[in-house]
Simulated scan of single mutants.
Amino acid sequence: MWKLAGKATFPRRQAAPKVVSFSFDVGNGPVELNVHSATPLNDDQWHRVVAERNVKEAVLQLDQTYRVSRSAPTQGHTRLELFSQLYVGAAGGQRGFLGCIRGLRMNGITLDLEDRAKVTPGVKPGCQGHCTSYGMYCRNGGKCVEKYNGYLCDCSKTAYDGPFCTKDIGGFFEAGTLVRYSLAPEPVSTSRESRLQSHQLWPQEVNLTREELSMSFSTSNSPAVLLYVSAKTQDYLALLLRHNGSLQVRYNLGGLREPFAIDVDQRNLANGQPHSINMSRVNRSITIQVQSSLADTHAPK
């Protein structure tokens, strides 16, 4: 019996591999086992692979989620005479592995890849990646993401943009001002004011049944409307601060005589401090998160 186990991480490339193969030949002809992942494996995350062959069966397992096995033939060879060298990362004439491998064990013995990496050209000890050294440059909550030959800062969940999430992309609103985005195409206008105030988000008219919204705000004045989305009908969705500074969501998505209101947070959020909001709507179900406060609410049928 022999057993091979280890963890590997793959850098992002154009291809999206989702299959891990385990092949061997002990004299009965070549045998190949394949496990298929639901998501690409070159996602810069660690994946655990266990391959085992014994007198009863051969097993291949990926991430303790995907598993495939095959029974051993009743006749034929059962032993694999291991007199040659063990190659890790490549074999003769095959395309080599690009990424990190750690925790490699064979038949219960842990193989020291770090010492071999120190004396092997093209192989470096350790699997820290670029983010270990340069992740500090991603500012304001930006997330460092490993790339094929470097890294980037993911600013999607911050109020900043730019290579290092340092470019402020917010706006200061004076009382009575607003910025308008068009969710459906409008007639072409030559008005300079219209071009400055209206920004089209989708190339064609859409009928949205769900939204994902995240934003940060800071104000010392209430009441105030933070966000308002309306349709050609009487349907709308509004995110606002009440007179006491508490956060409320109001909406009417059809069939309701009166708008439905959700009191999300009773604290005074108009206190001049920054607050973050994450809101998700699927049909009439809405989830709102304000900092560490979570509220789940369903509208009446």
Rank of each mutant, 00 (worst) to 15 (best):
S220P: 10
F217A: 07
G245V: 08
L213I: 14
L226R: 01
E212P: 00
K232L: 13
Q204N: 05
S216V: 09
T219C: 04
S222E: 01
G254L: 00
E212H: 07
V229Q: 08
V206W: 02
L247H: 06
L201Y: 08
R242G: 03
L240S: 15
K232F: 05
R257S: 13
T233V: 05
W202D: 06
M215H: 09
Y251R: 12
L208P: 10
N207W: 02
L253Y: 01
R242Q: 13
T233M: 04
V225R: 14
D235H: 00
L253M: 06
S220Y: 00
V229P: 00
E212K: 11
S246A: 13
L208H: 08
N244V: 13
S230L: 02
G245R: 12
N221S: 14
L239H: 03
Q204G: 01
N221Q: 11
E211K: 04
R242S: 12
A224P: 00
G255I: 01
R250K: 08
L239Q: 02
G245E: 04
S220L: 08
S230E: 08
N207C: 05
Y228H: 13
S216L: 05
L226A: 04
V206R: 09
R250I: 01
L237F: 12
E212D: 14
N207F: 02
A238H: 07
K232P: 11
R210P: 00
Y236S: 06
R210H: 14
R210G: 15
M215E: 11
R257I: 09
Q234E: 15
L201M: 10
S246N: 12
H199M: 11
Q234I: 12
E205Q: 08
S222I: 04
V206M: 05
S222D: 07
G245Q: 07
M215P: 04
N252I: 01
T209C: 10
G254D: 01
Y236Q: 02
N221M: 08
R210A: 14
R210T: 13
G255L: 02
V249P: 09
L240M: 15
Q248V: 10
W202P: 01
Y228P: 04
K232Y: 10
L253T: 03
L237A: 12
N244F: 11
R242D: 08
L256C: 03
N244I: 09
W202A: 12
G255N: 01
L240N: 13
L241H: 05
E212C: 01
